[in-house]
Design a protein around this nucleic acid. Structure first.
Length: 709
DNA sequence: GACCTGCTGCGGTTTG
């Protein structure tokens, strides 16, 4: 029997009406598997390969909608994705006469309320909305979700190895607790680096199978090199970029919000001068949401006009903007995972080749992009890092469960947390210690055997900021004549009379209203790109390893333009002074009169850890992340004497971290709820997330530094 | 030398 024949009659009619001649490979596989068993599945195949239908066709064929209650829960990391998928799912469900309800912070409230009165069909929801329902309306959770058959998780890779993912896992466990029968999980993803983590995500690795369609996409990649000065983009690069992107539908990824504006404003200026098209946009988190939606709408619905959107990762995930002709990456990609998502945006039309252009403004950036492109070709994607002991998320869930139950017996709370598979590496003693600490600090209160929210905890759980596990910066709304353009965090750069780029236009700041948190602006002729503060992106050690391999081989790459090839040759000559025999263990060490520089060619986290340990050992140093280099103001002798001893400093790192937490609390900024933990648990969080102790230990014992001769 | 994500309940006002 073919996959099509296995579908229910209404769903077969849907497929016929759509005029689909054949089902896509991932769809055929998913239909047979999902209809054949109640196991969990992860569907992995590229963007626009029909994954949504691959999940829904068999599930809608299988589920009996006559029974009361919501039967299918679809979970998405983005509201925008829910709104996109809603139309597709509703289209499908017309054939079954069931309700599809959007359930997120911006969704229609009346529709939500009427669903509570008569629970049925499908809900499309965000993790935070599930959390909010548990906290505020636990009876609604029961009413709606006690008869679930399937939970579908879209863009599941965006949850793997993240705090938000652990929160979602915990919520899945809590949903299963209120469910009368067992529900199955189907995850969807275009970019899976590690099947094991994806399978573990469901809580039942043994009963989870990955269905993979890795049909390759052919794309024409080229590298261009324009030496920059480290601040503004070079003029000749901008001119070349304009020629490169003046025709077609183009996405440009310049890596940060400031540069995104710089690119959009400058291309628009050139286009005005040369009378080219005027459709230049910028798209990132600081651009007003309505403006962004307009840009997305324009990209999706304009069949004829050319456009270029300079954007950040906001256009990396599955929001439907249609396929583009060209993707441009400016300076180094920081991960292959993100590069794959960006490549996935470009699709080939008949008779037209899709293209990817890498621009680099410095040699290290070029080398890193080349390494990422080569690894992408080898099929490597960074595996997500599992966080074994997420104490901060456990703390958050402890508060959520307590509030949800409006008071819970102490032992039952411990049991709820202990049996939750997302916390299975955290033992009972640890859970009790954390809860006791919360009681001591009035976040929780213990009355005889019962735990309730404490006096100071009320403020925490009743804040609208409680439902998410990620931190956000406070921002000021940027407004022109009542129209919202975007938002900025208040920085030294934002002051009256300053001119600044935003939403691909130039503005003068006329008034800053501290009380209303509003910045008034008027159009201006010239200005600067905005700057945003932040840490650097973490680079995986495999990328650095590949950079070293490229440097110490004789391969020529056809995709490099002459300037890039020349720059690579220069670098190879400069690095030829180190006699690297084994690329796995040897690393260059530049010895100069007053300093020593270690070219570690390893991941950023290992670099930060080693730099921290060296400082602990009394070796002052500077860590240059883009070059993966650590410069020490020491003699070679001192460095060689200190390096082998660094492992001892790992053994005694706790006290150093306690000192850091006292003098520089920002070290815990990666965690929203971590500051409520006892100090020793904060130390464990920092060790697990800010550093890579295991990686650093291995690096110290395996690596041999080779000096310049 | 970073990027991104989400949001209740309630009281007030406006609209059909």
């Amino acid at each position: 029997m073919t996959a099509y024949d296995q579908l229910s009659e209404p769903i077969r009619r849907f497929v016929r009406d759509k005029g689909w001649q054949t089902l896509r490979p991932i769809q055929a596989a998913a239909i047979t598997k999902i209809l054949g068993s109640d196991d969990n599945y992860i569907l992995a195949s590229r963007t626009a390969s029909g994954k949504t239908e691959a999940a829904f066709l068999p599930i809608l064929s299988k589920v009996n909608f006559k029974e009361k209650g919501v039967r299918i829960l679809y979970i998405s990391p983005l509201i925008a994705l829910i709104n996109d998928q809603f139309e597709r799912v509703e289209d499908l469900c017309k054939y079954l006469d069931i309700t599809v309800t959007r359930w997120h912070g911006e969704a229609n409230r009346a529709l939500k309320e009427s669903l509570v009165k008569e629970p049925n069909g499908i809900i499309l929801i965000t993790p935070e909305s599930i959390e909010a329902m548990f906290v505020n309306k636990p009876f609604n959770v029961k009413q709606l979700f006690s008869n679930l058959n399937y939970v579908i998780i879209d863009e599941i890779h965006s949850f793997l190895g993240t705090d938000r993912g652990i929160q979602l896992q915990s919520l899945l466990y809590r949903l299963q607790q209120v469910n009368t029968t067992h529900f199955s999980i189907v995850g969807l993803s275009a970019t899976l680096g590690d099947f094991k983590e994806a399978k573990r995500f469901t809580g039942n690795e043994a009963k989870t199978t990955v269905l993979l369609d890795r049909t390759p996409r052919s794309i024409n990649a080229r590298f261009k090199f324009f030496q920059g000065d480290g601040s503004a983009l070079p003029d000749d690069l901008l001119k070349d970029l304009y020629e490169e992107t003046k025709e077609g539908k183009v996405l440009i990824f310049p890596n940060n919000r400031g540069k995104t504006e710089e690119v959009a404003v400058n291309l628009k200026k050139i286009a005005t001068r040369l009378k080219g098209h005027n459709n230049y946009f910028s798209h990132h988190a600081s651009v007003n949401k309505t403006v962004r939606e307009y840009v997305e709408f324009f990209a999706k619905n304009n069949k004829r006009e050319f456009f270029a959107i300079a954007c950040t990762s906001t256009l990396e995930l599955g929001i439907d903007i249609g396929m583009v002709d060209k993707v441009v990456q400016i300076d180094a990609t920081s991960s292959i995972a993100s590069l794959s998502q960006r490549v996935g945006r470009s699709g080939r039309k008949e008779g037209q080749e899709s293209s990817l252009t890498f621009y680099a403004t410095n040699r290290w950036s070029m080398l890193q992009s080349l390494a990422c492109w080569l690894l992408h070709g080898e099929g490597f994607i960074e595996p997500p890092v599992a966080q074994l002991k997420p104490y901060d998320i456990l703390l958050h869930q402890a508060l959520s469960i307590t509030k949800s139950y409006s008071g819970i017996v102490f032992n039952l709370l411990i049991e709820q947390l202990h049996s939750n598979f997302s916390f299975n590496q955290i033992n009972k003693t640890e859970i009790v210690e954390i809860l006791q600490h919360l009681i001591e600090n009035n976040i929780l209160e213990k009355i005889q055997n019962e735990i309730i929210i404490g006096v100071d905890g009320e403020r925490v759980v009743n804040s609208k900021d409680f439902y998410s596990v990620f931190k956000t910066e406070e921002t000021f709304k940027v407004v022109h004549k009542g129209h919202a353009i975007g938002e900025f965090p208040l920085s030294a750069q934002i002051r009256e009379d300053e001119n600044i780029f935003l939403a691909a236009r130039i503005w003068k700041i006329t008034f800053i209203d501290e009380k209303a948190k509003k910045i008034e602006v008027i159009p201006a002729k010239d200005g600067k790109k905005p700057t945003f503060s932040g840490e650097g992106p973490p680079i995986h050690a495999r990328i650095r390893q590949k950079m070293l391999e490229v440097l110490y081989c004789a391969d020529q790459y056809e995709i490099l333009d002459q300037a890039s090839a020349d720059e690579l040759e220069t670098m190879r000559k400069e690095f030829a002074v180190y006699n690297i025999m084994d690329q796995n263990t040897d690393r260059p060490m530049l010895v100069e009169e007053k300093s020593v520089t270690l070219f570690t060619f390893t991941g950023t986290k290992i670099n930060s850890t080693i730099a921290f340990l060296l400082a602990q050992a009394g070796c002052k140093n500077l860590c240059y992340h883009s070059e993966s280099a650590i410069e020490l103001e020491s003699t070679q002798k001192e460095v060689m004497r200190t390096l082998p001893k660094l492992s001892n400093y790992i053994d005694s790192i706790d006290s150093a971290i306690i000192y850091q937490l006292e003098t520089n609390p920002a070290i815990l900024n990666f965690s929203k709820w971590g500051s409520l933990l006892p100090t020793n648990y904060q130390v464990e969080l920092v060790k697990a997330k800010a550093f890579d102790l295991q990686g650093a230990r291995a690096f110290i014992s395996n690596i041999n530094f080779v000096e310049n001769k």
